[in-house]
């Protein structure tokens, strides 16, 4: 499989705060990804990893802090327009079950970019070939395996030609034998120049694919560094504890 050449842009979050009522989910999180690089976010459940992604693409509006895409703040932009520039892949795929695979992918380009039906379908088929599922174009998501569904979800996000991709525990819901295929695809994207923020429990992936690893706990970043730094010589006790549990 050849990696396509992708044009990722840099993404920065500074001092991000978010609370749901009295529950402070994010307490001043900073994050920076250079264009074309991959940041992996690890940490125990409930540490705020998934919420961080949703604040960065403004599915949740932050209480404080800023988000910069390609160096420019996007908090004043139309949030719908912002999200068109950031692709997102979910733990449970969230494909649209009432549409075929190709319709799932063609929907957003058609309705949001004003493509004709044929243009959108051609684009969708191109994306499907990229994830190796062109032969499933007319299937319903329910008739695909979990791994296939996740690859369709990735194709759906890529069809909008995003500048950044978010992966929210994209392999957590998959049977072990299906994980490899999805991880391989993600690795390809990273290699192809996409800017990626990956929330994952796959430590092998975090170590081998990411440029930077970020460890979060209780809504704050505890430690950041290269994979080697974090996995081989963790500085904080909390990261040591976490790694001893998951490795």
């Amino acid at each position: 499989m050849t990696a396509p050449t992708l044009e990722g842009v840099s993404l920065t979050g500074t001092g991000l705060h978010l609370a749901f009522g009295s529950n402070k989910v994010l307490r001043g999180v900073d994050l920076h990804v250079d264009a074309g690089k991959t940041v992996t976010v690890i940490g125990p459940s409930g540490s705020g990893k998934s919420t961080l992604l949703r604040v960065l693409n403004r599915l949740y509006e932050p209480d404080a802090g800023d988000v910069l895409l390609d160096g420019k703040s996007v908090l004043k932009d139309n949030p719908d327009a912002l999200r068109q520039r950031i692709g997102m892949v979910f733990q449970h795929f969230n494909l649209f079950p009432h549409k075929t695979v190709i319709e799932n992918i063609a929907l957003a380009p058609r309705k949001l970019k004003g493509m004709s039906k044929d243009e959108a379908r051609a684009l969708a088929l191109e994306q499907l070939e990229l994830v190796g599922l062109a032969h499933k174009a007319e299937s319903r998501p329910a008739n695909l395996s979990g791994g296939q569904q996740q690859r369709v979800a990735i194709a759906r996000a890529l069809a909008m030609k995003p500048q950044v991709m978010f992966f929210d525990e994209a392999t957590s819901a998959l049977d072990p034998e299906l994980v490899k295929g999805v991880l391989a695809l993600m690795a390809d994207l990273g290699a192809g120049g996409m800017t990626m923020v990956v929330v994952t429990h796959e430590m092998g992936f975090a170590r081998s694919v990411s440029d930077t690893v970020m460890f979060m706990d209780h809504g704050a970043v505890v430690e950041t560094g290269t994979p080697d730094q974090l996995f081989d010589s963790p500085e904080t006790e909390r990261l040591q504890q976490f790694l001893s549990q998951v490795l």
Partner: peptide
């Protein structure tokens, strides 16, 4: 109930993590 016809495609198994 719906119509079930899940099949594993060969690609699924063939793909490997390229970097690592």
């Amino acid at each position: 109930v719906g119509r079930k016809e899940v099949t594993l495609d060969p690609l699924e198994q063939d793909l490997v993590v390229e970097r690592g």
